[in-house]
Design a protein around this nucleic acid. Structure first.
Lengths: 156, 156
DNA sequence: CACGTTTAAGTTGTGCACAATTGAACTGCG
DNA sequence: CGCAGTTCAATTGTGCACAACTTAAACGTG
């Protein structure tokens, strides 16, 4: 029997996102990280240091989510936050030695995830691109009023 | 410059899921529903009535999420919860007239979403299937220890 | 029948997500 | 300079998401 949500891509994405997070949870638990915290660390391992604004942009999250998240990571000793001298509005997030050290313990997480996804390289990249394109279509300003409806939009 | 998360499908799904939810928020706001609440209503509009267990299974959520969510929908007058007479453990969730009436006001939500996604029918179904397959691969028990690593699993 | 086990649902506590608000620091322009 | 307007970040409040725990009903086996 067909279930009511089976044909909904929006639900499929929602379920997939949670399933992938669930998959990583046991591994991240050993590092003392949640999934969003892990994403912050992934960015920091590459960048060493960047403003909160850029970090929030990279994660596509707002300050209301990122601020307390960074506070917890700072309390765990994985990063530091310091106001910039040249612009006191901006706060720079910087990796600590403890944060850098965690990288080695996390290095096999992506492999395990890839493995569990059971996709070959082509499938992986095709799906990645399709999902990224979807995000862009849907995030574009006025997305809800465009698409296959070329009727006059409410932009006088 | 390549961003650290750009090659991560897990992040792409997480971002896409949130972007699609954001897209629907203004429409659902007018109905007084959050996105998970809307999903519950979608199921109820099809099924009229079902146990909490089945609803949680359909949404792939646990009781800890679903119980308070149903409480709020009941307070809003959209559904009723009643213990079954033949099995006092089970609670049946049933659509009220108010809940049924909301269906008409929500009917153009899926169309608007589809439209904003800017996908043709084939792309939509291909992506839907790919995402569903991924969820299944990743949700399968022991997913993290299988895949392209046929090494002995820790199942003595 | 009694007793341990399983099952359905709810509760508690932590941590996201996000809207709305606040506040401080920078900017632009007359 | 003065000050409206913008920008960066944090706070507050609501509602998920989920682990861990609790409660109560049904079941199974001796």
């Amino acid at each position: 029997m067909p279930e009511p949500l089976d044909d909904k891509l929006c639900f499929a994405l929602y379920a997939a996102s949670r399933a992938v997070t669930q998959l990583q949870r046991p591994m991240l638990d050993e590092l003392g990280l949640t999934y969003p915290q892990y994403l912050v660390m992934v960015v920091l391992w590459e960048k060493r240091s960047l403003p909160v604004k850029d970090l929030a942009a990279a994660l596509q999250l707002d300050y209301g989510t990122v601020s307390p998240l960074l506070k917890r990571l700072e309390a765990a000793g994985l990063l530091r936050r310091e106001r910039r001298a040249d612009d006191e509005r901006s706060v720079l997030v910087a990796l600590t030695d403890g944060g850098a050290a965690l990288r080695a313990r996390a290095e096999d997480v992506p492999g395990a995830v890839l493995c569990a996804m059971d996709l070959d390289d082509d499938e992986y990249h095709a799906l990645l691109r399709a999902v990224q394109k979807l995000t862009e279509s849907v995030s574009a300003p006025g997305a809800a009023s465009r698409g296959r409806t070329p009727a006059a939009a409410a932009t006088p």
